[in-house]
Write a protein that binds this DNA or RNA. Structure first.
Lengths: 140, 140
DNA sequence: TTTCTAATTTTCAATAGTTGCTAATTAGCA
DNA sequence: TGCTAATTAGCAACTATTGAAAATTAGAAA
């Protein structure tokens, strides 16, 4: 996603208002590679702006998603996660600690067994143990 | 998953009872490639057995899943879908009609950008238009 | 066949995640 | 400074799923 400053301009140009709540979320999401859930963002946001509503967090996340600034990802952990990295990439989820990492593949794998399906997008979710957790597992 | 007959034996051997509700679900799932949700199965089940509870459907699906007879898949459509095909395969979802199809890939793609992650499983979800829906789109 | 009991089903309440609605507030233009 | 459409907060509602407890029942044993 673009920087908070660029988003400020983009929002105004689109006829959208730049509220303190939105600015806060722009900042919390920028360069955030933690793949936070709406609720996780809400917790952090509340520290800096007590009284901000969870509804506003969801609303802003949906706005940013439909503008293509962030993407919503579902790695099967119950709630949606949000990723400011909108480049072509995939995700690896640690079954132990739940961390979600961005990963890249050389080429999207070609699928067999289905004729005439026009693929628009392919998303891969890897599951396993992250480096830290597999280290810890070794010492047991 | 195994046939209803084989499952009947397997359940009894595991000390589990074979109730009419379970037998019905065995039949509804066997050779079912529609990737139904719990609710979809409940609807069909209700026709043949009015009064069956949604809770029982969930319970039986969870039991079959933990026995490895079916697998639970999440293609981002809100609710879990259940697949009696437990071979190593992936899924293609039509953005138009919502149909979910089984697909196969030659080899799981190797991921880059993350060191030390021990991959246990990789799941690919393709999105796009199925053959039927892309046909229809052509004629517009 | 009847009895018994643990397993199962049903019912209903509860939970998590998310969205709909509305009144009150406010950004930002005139 | 005022105005107004956009936004926020608050809360109800909704979907998907699970928890808990009472009632029922499969299937082994008598």
């Amino acid at each position: 996603m673009r920087s908070p400053e660029e988003l400020t301009i983009a929002f105004r140009e689109a006829g959208l208002k730049v509220t303190p709540q939105r600015q806060l979320l722009f900042r919390l999401l920028h360069n955030n590679c933690a793949h936070p859930t709406a609720d996780a963002l809400y917790s952090v946001a509340t520290e800096q702006m007590p009284g901000i509503s969870l509804r506003t967090v969801y609303q802003t996340l949906n706005d940013l998603t439909s503008m293509g600034e962030i993407q919503s990802i579902d790695v099967g952990t119950g709630s949606s996660r949000f990723d400011p990295n909108v480049s072509d990439h995939h995700h690896a989820v640690c079954d132990e600690c739940g961390a979600v990492h961005d990963v890249y593949v050389n080429q999207a794998p070609e699928m067999r067994g289905l004729n005439g399906f026009a693929v628009a997008d392919a998303r891969i979710v890897y599951r396993g143990l992250c480096a830290t957790c597999s280290e810890l597992a070794q010492h047991r």
